[in-house]
Design a protein around this nucleic acid. Structure first.
Lengths: 298, 298
DNA sequence: GTGTTAGATTCAGAGATACTGAAATAATAG
DNA sequence: CTATTATTTCAGTATCTCTGAATCTAACAC
């Protein structure tokens, strides 16, 4: 929290600095005024106001055409710099507005980034090369925190059981969750399923799993936890317990684990989350469209 | 003559950028408004206007206190830079105004820089270390050209016979001009003086000399010319002719030349010249004072 | 829950500011 | 000297920006 200082700065405007630049770049003020699209009168008054605010005389009259004082070159340099910087800023803002440029900080859970929306993200990246896309892969809870904390602009996560404050969700797609057991332990009734290796207790997916297992009449005693699906699969292969996961190609046959039944025990709802009441962000909007859109996933 | 481009830039004001900086540097807008010395209302409206001109939303409301969007850091960076540059400019302008800094391009004839005002110039230089003093030594005619052409700010020269357009002269001091002859040619009546070695025909001093010699009843046939007094003296010593010069210590005795009579044949008027109607220049004013002032010389 | 308080915004009006167009001034060209 | 053109000054209008009051909202106390 820096003290800004009590001496009030002169309230120079970009327009006045443009006037100065134009006046020095054109032989006559009439020409300068014409390119600026104002009357010579406006130019005269604007430059007079600038002189008043800087507190120094900037021009010297030589006959008919006024010339910049050599002492005023400092002011002219300042004017050129500020005008150029403002022009850059205006260009940048225009790009931001049109969505053709900008920064989007996207967060997704692993399955979305690696599997379901990998192609959509890749396509967006190549279709919008000017958009600086930052991808964070994390569990849904962390994503949600990042979103409300302002560290992320857009997330794809598992719909939380309790609606979060200040976050707007849009449904994206549903993903079936199947029960997997170590090979050789299949075909038991649900009441004898388990014990379980699954996601940590703060996991949204775990809440969905718990609810699904309860509906199926299965117990839910957890003996091991991990956020990584691959770790869970390995634990199952090692015979530590059962798990519930989305189906993965090539996981079902001869790999030490198999689906306990063909129907999923639950579905997790994948949603796109945005901060509620956040100002329009064209780049993030464009990305959200391809993430939600029906033809977006493969 | 660069084309400034037809897209009109947003007319951002330094004040609006200050608002932005203050708003991000203070936890609450009330505090920011207080340090700026305006009401919170003004701050709100000013920031809203800034958003409108940039064309992008800059803030995001989190509960009670609004926070800068991360996308707006570009704008904030711009604001900080411009505010800092403007503060520098204001400081520089204040120094210029007070005369404690600045650039003064002084032009004098040789005798003034080397002899009559050498001490005054040296003292000014050490008393005003922040003033960047450029000294040009040249004949009066060149000095006058430089002054009206804008290459010099202040000159000390021989008063021209015809008042120059657009130049304001202030009397500085008078300098006697004596007739010097080669040793052994003294004590002739003026009608037999000469021939002469003297300044070139465009010299102001030569005009004064010509007039003085005419008054004394002496002829004025010139056989050699130079702008440098030392060259003229050497020519006299070599017996090429007579000359008229200001007295120089140590020149009178046993050096091959001597004064033809004790009274000066003319006086040249040294004046300080400024461009007429030139805007106030405190640094040049201060220097002019010590050059003119009665206690200024050695 | 409700009430209170402080921060932030909105609104209306006063004052400052910046523009246009007309008139006046100054300087160059014929 | 006159005509022409560049520039400035002036008056009036439109816009902008401020203050102060009212309103709204979120956080806090009870």
């Amino acid at each position: 929290m820096l003290e800004t200082g009590l001496q009030s700065l002169p309230n120079l405007t970009v327009q006045q600095l443009e006037y100065l630049v134009a006046a020095t770049d054109h032989p006559t003020r009439a020409a300068a005024a014409a390119t600026l699209g104002v009357t010579p009168s406006a130019l005269t008054q604007g430059l007079a106001e600038l002189e008043r605010r800087v507190g120094l005389p900037l021009f010297e009259r030589h006959g008919r055409h006024t010339e910049l004082r050599h002492q005023a070159t400092e002011v002219l340099t300042h004017a050129r710099r500020v005008v150029a910087e403002t022009r850059d800023l205006a260009r940048w803002a225009a790009a931001q507005r049109s969505g053709s440029a900008g920064v989007v900080r996207l967060g997704t859970i692993d399955a979305v980034a690696v599997q379901h929306r990998a192609e959509a993200i890749r396509a967006f990246h190549s279709n919008h090369p000017e958009v600086d896309l930052h991808l964070t892969v994390a569990p849904s809870g962390s994503l949600l925190e990042g979103l409300v904390g302002g560290d992320l602009d857009l997330i794809v996560c598992v719909e939380p059981v309790r609606a979060s404050e200040g976050v707007a969700f849009t449904h994206c797609f549903d993903e079936p969750l199947h029960v997997y057991a170590p090979e050789g332990e299949l075909r038991r009734p649900p009441s004898q399923w388990g014990p379980w290796v699954t996601f940590p207790s703060d996991s949204h997916t775990r809440a969905v799993i718990a609810s699904g297992l309860a509906n199926a009449g299965a117990p839910f005693d957890v003996v091991a936890e991990s956020n990584q699906p691959e770790v869970l699969r390995e634990m199952v292969r090692l015979g530590l317990g059962w798990t519930v996961l989305p189906p993965v190609a090539g996981t079902t046959a001869g790999s030490g684990m198999a689906a306990a039944r063909s129907e999923p025990v639950a579905h997790r709802h994948l949603v796109v989350g945005r901060r509620e009441g956040s100002p329009p962000d064209p780049a993030a909007d464009a990305l959200a469209v391809v993430l939600i859109g029906p033809g977006a996933g493969r």
